[in-house]
Amino acid sequence: MDLSHMNAGVLVASLMVASVPILLAALGELVVEKSGVLNLGVEGMMIVGAVTGFIAAFHSGSAVLGFVGGAAGGAALSMIFALLTQFLMANQVATGLALTLFGQGLASLLGQSYVGQKPPLTGKLPFGPLADLPFVGPVLFGHDWVVYFSVLAVGAISWFLTRSRGGLVLRAVGENHDAAHSLGYKVRLVRVAAIGFGGAMAGLGGAYLSLVRVPQWTEGMTAGAGWIALAIVVFASWRPWRVLMGAWLFGGISVLQLNMQAAGSAIPVQYLSMSPYLITILVLVIMSSGRSRASLGAPASLGQNFHAAR
């Protein structure tokens, strides 16, 4: 096996790109879970975002509109979840699963006639000569706008949750919905908004897969990315900057195993391909071992439905 062609700068840069879909989806889910809602439908929203984003970009010829379309698709699907769990009091775990099953079917249905098509290109931001610097160039100045957007989103969400009034209300709703309700906060409204945001972010992540990472539409292209995003939220103890670390860790592993596959490693391809999932499980075990949900930082009302008696 020959790994000598791997340049550290290129490796770090491709790790950052590989982590974007999961980072976006995990950030969205973080906000949803902070409001006390467990949406297991991330995988479904991602794949619907991937296909609606692709369709929007393909017909408009604009990659930016594609990302808008992906976010809209993910958010639209998440509204089904919001309706069922917030207004019809359905079990959140089951509804999230339904969202994934339905989303996968819907996405293949929508994407049928787009298999094999090419989307418009999402170019790198022009940094001029800065991009040619060794190491720093590819790592800091060699990306498309979505990569910068995703890192900025980490900071923005971190600020929102800890420093803004809206973020504090959202967390109050997630920690104790009855108390928040008594204080006059609109529990349902906050949660529906959070669910919609989570859907849009998952959709964006999906669109990044179909517009930049692959870039084309293929059935089942998310391949568990949504579930890994869910795992990363737990791994990160519900903290945005740790989500970034988790996403980079995962991105690093997937880039490394792809490089090893390309370099003709002695380990069979299938074992390399299963490594990201195994390492996600391993990290989950290490993080949650011997600790209660509360000490991990899980919102206290996570997964519980809210019904105001009056």
Binding site: L84, A90, A98, L101, F102, G105, L106, S108, L109, Q112
Partner: peptide, 18 residues
């Protein structure tokens, strides 16, 4: 399309939960 049936089955779960 085959995917329509998959979406159909997913829908069934939605309606059940609703």
């Amino acid at each position: 399309p085959a995917a329509a049936i998959q979406a159909f089955q997913g829908m069934l779960l939605f309606f059940l939960l609703a």
